[in-house]
Amino acid sequence: MSNGFKSPYQLITDRILADLARGVAAWAKPWNSDAPAVASRPMNFSNSAVYRGVNTIMLHIACVERGWPVPAFATFNQVRKLKGSIIKGSKGEHVFFKSQVEANPKTAEEEGRANADGKIKRTVLKGYTVFNLAQVEGIEIDLPGLAKPSEIPSEIVDLAQLVGVTLRHGGDKAIYRPDIDAVTMPVPESFESLAHYKATAFHEIGGHGTGHESRLNRQFGRKFGDDAYIFEEMIAELCAAFLALEFGVQGDLRHPEYIASWIKVLKSDNRAFYRAAAEAQRAMDWIRERAGGPSP
């Protein structure tokens, strides 16, 4: 559009593409918090709500790039209600949510379900601005009180049992086989660190394992490189990132060779990353419910 407007989907996609073009997966960037008592998942310090889906990734990236030690955010009005203020010159971060709006029908099918006013309800993505705790003054927050213990088991053997996949060790490749519903991992000692082992296992078990037809029934793709295959890899990468944030484990880019393919997909579909993050969040919700956590 002539006024330079970008849709929320395009804002998200442009942000991710900027890093991918440099050969970096933004969601796998390590983040070392100076406040280890605080949960690593981005959350709202006003109401203790944990951000979800693509917002988790976008706010994590902001913390990494801007050096914020605590992943806690709030809106301008929430800060004001807490009797605080935003430090002058601070630039906020976008978070996104879906909302229904009334619109004019564009097709015959839409006209057929229009209401009495001739309108239909259409779901759109909207955004609003939040500020990090480091950008706020005049209030005190109980940082340890923000921490929320996870219901999900952090040990890989326990996670595999919870999901329901068979876990085996051996060989030099990490792989999930949906035909036998099993994950094969190299022995932990062969990885650079225990964190790298866990990050890889998160990808295979929490990511691919949840997509099995007996669970969330995702499409895995028929061959290396097709669109469904690449999209599934993106989902698994993001699910691994969510689990890494859950337990404060340094993220690890599982398949760096996919970056060129991800760039191609995102350039052709500016909703692809949002949808992948939503599917990864769906997988996390499934795992959390299975572990006895609260329903999303």
Rank of each mutant, 00 (worst) to 15 (best):
S2V: 14
G4C: 00
K6Y: 06
L11I: 15
I12N: 00
D19F: 15
L20Y: 06
A21S: 14
A21H: 15
R22L: 15
K29R: 13
A39H: 13
N44K: 03
M58T: 06
I61H: 04
R66M: 09
V70G: 00
A74V: 06
L82T: 07
K83W: 00
G84F: 01
K88H: 09
S90E: 03
E93S: 15
H94S: 11
F96H: 00
S99E: 14
Q100T: 12
V101F: 13
V101Y: 11
T107I: 04
E110T: 08
G112C: 08
R113C: 11
K119L: 15
I120D: 07
I141D: 06
K148N: 07
E151G: 06
I156R: 09
V163M: 03
V165N: 01
T166Q: 13
R168T: 10
R168A: 12
R168D: 09
G170T: 09
T184E: 14
M185Q: 08
M185G: 10
S190F: 11
S193K: 09
G206M: 05
H208Y: 09
G209E: 09
R215W: 03
A228Q: 13
E233T: 05
C239N: 07
F242R: 03
F247L: 07
V249S: 06
G251N: 02
G251Q: 07
H255E: 10
V265N: 01
S268Q: 14
N270W: 02
A272Y: 02
A277N: 09
A277S: 14
Q281W: 04
W286H: 11
I287E: 05
R288P: 03
